[in-house]
Amino acid sequence: MLIQQLVNGLLLGTTFALIALSFNLVVGALDRLNFALGETAMVSAICGSLFLSRLDLPFVLAFLVSLAVGALIAGITFLLSFRFVSAQYHTAPILSSLGVGLVITSLVTRLLGSDQRRVPSVLEGVRIEIGPLRIVGDQLIILAVAALMTVLLYGFLNRTPWGTAIRGVSDDPDMAGLLGVPVQRVILLTFVVSGTLAGASGLLTGLSFHTVSPFTGFETTLTALMVIVLGGLGNITGGVVAGLMIGVIETMTVAYLSATYRDLIVFLLVGITLVARPQGLFTRNTGVVGRV
């Protein structure tokens, strides 16, 4: 059972890692947190689930819809909460994006209702058993798609001109601007890519949990914050490792202690990290407050 629980934890962590990647991209580009990303993931997942269950579309199409919705909402959030806000007001984008998140939740509950929606299984009945280990079809899809998204992101950031531009703006926006990089367009692109990842994370999480609820947005944001604090703000690899770590810790806590200790233990870990190593477990030497 221990190995099975480890796999369960890693799979849960995979979805955390994706949303943390999404947050870290924005932190990298702007040194700001987009607090509406949790809600972005939620809307994308709801749209994807509607396409899967109501229109009976193939998973690939529903997944692409989720990515598109995530990208669109992240782009709009950038324009509403970041683009025209002066850099001297550090808290303004935080509050503004929190507000965007609340508006998104309200709109979804008004337009689509507050019920949780079922995300139908994609590979129903498919089950792989290796000794004591059992992996079902949906878990395979989550693993494969999350891995693919991560590899594509790495490829995009490291092998394409736009990816290089994103990294350049992330390192030094002033220098990038002087070298002719269209900084604002690159930041918008970063938000769009970040929203795409949030959309992917939303639908994959829905697939993993079998449902999606309009009220999970802020919860997702909180989880992502835990992950990126642990992994280091802006550190993409750290976010992935921390996401997997938190997934395993949560799963093991539920399996061998109690569900009520789950958040407590994660918060304790994050608290200790903030005190002992504020820059995160895997990142450069700048603390959370200094970065955001």
Partner: peptide, 19 residues
Amino acid sequence: VTFASGDSSFASQVTSMAS
């Protein structure tokens, strides 16, 4: 096995029961 209202994933609890 236990959970808390609104928990997202039940994989861990179900694995425990399955054993």
